[in-house]
């Protein structure tokens, strides 16, 4: 399967297979008026299988969101067909308005304008907790 290479834009590579759509949704890529390609289950020597997202525009992407979904993903910034920057990620300490708290007893359930904020509680287990009620994500 061939997808054209991009001239100016971003390639999110080495996404754990199966996480591409989640990333697409959380980054709200469906709302963009540019070409976006999601390639699922690409054969990878390193990972066996991986997902790739190509965005045909040099737009700012939320690195915390990508780091949350898959801290091992890499971000390649392409300009004039040339790789100009490669970014590596880490699990973010805090996520704001990425996840919603599902606890019906949480203050965020009745105060609609409060930001939904989650903090990294356990890096090894990739566990996030709501800062208000400590319910896990």
């Amino acid at each position: 399967m061939n997808i054209d290479s991009i001239q100016n834009g971003i390639v999110i590579d080495h996404i754990r297979a199966g996480c591409g759509m989640q990333l697409y949704d959380l980054l709200k890529l469906g709302e963009l008026d540019v070409s976006v390609a999601i390639i699922k289950n690409v054969t990878s020597h390193k990972m066996g299988k991986k997902d790739i997202i190509k965005i045909d525009a040099d737009i700012p992407v939320d690195l915390d969101v990508i780091g949350f979904v898959d801290p091992d993903a890499t971000i390649n910034v392409i300009r004039n067909g040339v790789l100009v920057e490669k970014k590596t990620l880490a699990l973010p300490e805090k996520l704001t308005n990425v996840l919603k708290c599902k606890n019906p007893r949480c203050i965020t359930s009745c105060e609609q304008e409060l930001p939904h904020v989650f903090k990294l509680a356990d890096r090894a287990q990739r566990l996030y907790r709501c800062i208000y009620c400590e319910t896990k994500a």
Partner: peptide, 10 residues
């Protein structure tokens, strides 16, 4: 005191 969890932090 508030019935909702996290109200005091807010």
């Amino acid at each position: 005191r508030h019935p909702k969890e996290g109200a005091a932090l807010v």
